[in-house]
Simulated assay, not measured.
Amino acid sequence: MSSTTTDYKHIVLNDRQVPVIEGSTMKVIEIAMAQRAHGWTPEEIHINHRHLTMGQIHSALSYYWDHQSELEAAMDAELREIETLRQAAGESPFVARLKAQNLLP
């Protein structure tokens, strides 16, 4: 797997041009989402992702805030694709069984 360096220490673009933390598969957007979804500080992100250094976390957050609009556009596109796939897959057999047993509405 190849990567391209960025102006941000610890952040590289993977072969799909997605920003990741160098030496890992952790995407920058995953760090930003953890902060937004849980309200975590960088220290709390570190507690939950011990394999990352504080420098890596701060660099990922800096990259996110400097590229917020393009990263959120990519997230929106990914969510639309997921929803399309979910709709195409239909109801799972497990959910159908639960509904048949009146365990789900």
Rank of each mutant, 00 (worst) to 15 (best):
A32I: 08
A89Y: 02
Q68Y: 05
V12S: 04
L103E: 07
N14I: 07
R16Y: 11
M75A: 10
Q68W: 00
A96V: 14
T4P: 00
T4M: 12
L61G: 07
S24H: 14
W65G: 00
T25A: 13
L13Y: 11
G39L: 05
E78L: 10
T6D: 03
H38V: 03
L13T: 06
T53H: 06
A73R: 12
T41V: 04
N14M: 08
P42L: 02
A74D: 05
M75R: 11
S69W: 04
K9A: 13
A34E: 13
I45H: 05
T5Y: 04
R36W: 08
L71P: 02
E91R: 14
I47P: 00
T4A: 02
W65S: 14
T41W: 09
N48L: 01
E91V: 15
D15N: 14
T84K: 14
A37I: 10
Q56P: 07
H46K: 15
T84A: 15
G90N: 08
I29L: 12
I45R: 01
Y8K: 07
V28G: 06
M75Q: 12
G90C: 10
L13S: 07
D15F: 08
I57A: 04
A74S: 12
A34R: 11
T5H: 09
I47K: 15
L104Q: 08
H46L: 15
L61Y: 03
F94N: 09
E81D: 14
E44H: 10
K9G: 01
T25Q: 12
S3W: 10
A100C: 02
L85E: 13
R80K: 15
M33S: 11
E43T: 11
E91W: 04
D76N: 06
R36G: 08
H38P: 00
Q87W: 00
H38L: 11
D7G: 14
M75W: 03
E83Q: 11
